[in-house]
């Protein structure tokens, strides 16, 4: 039972990039996320590597995804339904259950695996100005 599937993952959903450009969710590429973060200000793209995938202990039916996030390799764990898509750098949409993602959203996915590096966002921090690029 999945009462509230976020419809932004439905194939054909229209996504607005920070540049104002509109794209279908299935047409998004790594650069779209990177450029959007660059022009949005306040948001930063992080590389989050999947280091472990297992069944959630607390919430049956969900999957616990363990990530190491960003340059600091911070450990973050999130529980998601197996059909939840993540965007893997250089690969595209990926989920723990591409079959369920296809059923529920119509979105073609790769199989998310340990070692995959996912696009995530975080708040831009002023601590390390080396990331700033003036055009």
């Amino acid at each position: 039972p999945a009462p509230s599937n976020p419809s932004h993952f439905m194939k054909g959903a229209i996504i607005q990039l920070a540049t104002g450009e509109l794209k279908r969710v299935e047409d998004l590429q790594t650069q779209d996320f990177v450029r959007s973060a660059e022009v949005s200000g306040g948001l930063k793209i992080d590389s989050s590597m999947v280091v472990d995938i297992r069944a959630s202990q607390q919430r049956p039916g969900l999957v616990s995804l363990h990530f190491t996030v960003g340059e600091q390799q911070s450990k973050v764990t999130i529980d998601v339904p197996p059909e939840h898509p993540f965007f893997v750098f250089g690969q595209g949409w990926s989920s723990c259950s591409p079959e369920r993602t296809a059923q529920l959203y119509g979105l073609a996915c790769h199989h998310l695996q340990v070692g995959d590096v996912c696009v995530s966002i975080t708040l831009q921090q002023q601590m390390q100005p080396q990331q700033h690029k003036q055009p």
């Binding site: 976020p6 996504i15 607005q16 949005s40 600091q72 973050v76 898509p85 696009v119 995530s120 966002i121």
Partner: peptide, 19 residues
Amino acid sequence: VPVFPWHSLVPFLAPTQSD
């Protein structure tokens, strides 16, 4: 037709900093 912002598609993973 609804339009969704790009950042709704990717997880917000805030590094957990203890300090």
